[in-house]
Amino acid sequence: MRVAVLGAGAVGARVARQLLASDSVDQVLLRDVSSERLARSAGSIGDRVVIEHHPFPATLDADAVVVASPRGTQLAAVEEAISAGLPAVLVSDGLAETVAILRLDRAARDAGIPVLVGAGFAPGLTCVLVAHGMSWFDEVDEIHVYKMGAGGPACALVHHRALSRFSYDWRDDAWTRRPGGSGRELCWFPEPVGPRDCYRAALADPVLLHHAFPGVGRITSRMAATRRDRLTAPMPMLTPTHVEGGTGAVRVELRGRRGTAQETLVLGAAERPAVGAAVVAATAIEWVLDGRVSVGGMAGLAEAVEPVGFLGELADRGLATEIFEGDGAGS
C-alpha cells in the first residue's frame, strides 16, 4: 500500500511517521511546496518515504490520500483525489473550505470513494467523541463542542482568524449566525489545560455534526481565547507564529434524555493539537485502507467510523479519552 500525504508540516510529517511506524503502509509519498520542509521531515521519517516538491507530477501515484496542507489548498487537493478515484482523509479546520468540500459529495459518490472530512483534532476527535457519547442517551437534544490550542503555523492562522469571523450554530432547525469572540463561557478541559474562557468562532464542527446527526436540535462550538486574542483577532497576525503550539484540549458536552431523566455527558482529551490530529488522521486512513469505513462520498468521522473501536485504537497510540464526572454529570 502507498499513501500520499499532502503537506509536510506539523501534522503531515507526523501522519507519515505514524503510518510507517505501524507498518500499515509500505511507502509514503510526501508532497509539499517547500523543499526545505520536505528535507527536514523526510530526514526524520526514514527511507520508506518518497518526497515530491513543486512543480508536482501530473498524476498522484498512491492508493489513498491524506490532505494535511494549509487552508485554501485543500479544496483543489480533494478535487484531484476524486478525479484520480482515490479515497481521501482531510485534516481540515477552516469553516468556509469545509462547507465547499462537503459540496463535492455527489462527485465523490459518483467516483465510489469515501472522503473523510475534518479528520484531525477538532474537528475529528471531537466528532468521534460525540458519536461515542450518543450511545449514552435515548435522545440527544444538544451538542456543544469546545477546543483549546493550535498546532502548526497554518493551524494558528485559522485559529486567529476564526475569532473575527461569524460562527454558525445549529438552533431550532436553522443556522444562527453570531459574531466570533462573543458568548463567553468558562469551560473545564482535561488536565493539564484546566479552566479556560471560550468564545464563539468560525469553526467547522457544527457543520460536520449536523451532517451526521440532523435530528439534534442544538449544535454549537466555541474555542478558548484570551482577551488579547479577541482584541487582535481582526488585525493581521502581528508576530510570527510558533513552530508548534503547546498542549491543547477538546471537550464535548451532550445533553439529552436517558429513560425519564435529563442528563449531561462531558467527554474530552488533552494533547498537542498537531500530535492529536496526526494520530486521528493516520488511524482514519488505515481504517479506509482496511475497508472499515462504511460510508461513500463526503462524511465526517462521526458517521464514518465505529467510535468505540476507533477511540480504542487512538488510546493505543497514546491519545486517551476522558470523561468528566462532576455533580450529576455522566452518572
Binding site: L186, W188, L267, E325, D327
Partner: peptide, 24 residues
C-alpha cells in the same frame, strides 16, 4: 488591567477520569 488580569476560576466539582473497559 483587563488585558493582563486573570480572575480566579470558580471551584470545580468532580474531575476527569480516563475511559476504560471494552465499551470505553
Amino acid at each position: 488591567l483587563r488585558l493582563r488580569g486573570r480572575v480566579a476560576a470558580p471551584m470545580q466539582f468532580g474531575g476527569w477520569r480516563r475511559l476504560s473497559g471494552p465499551g470505553l
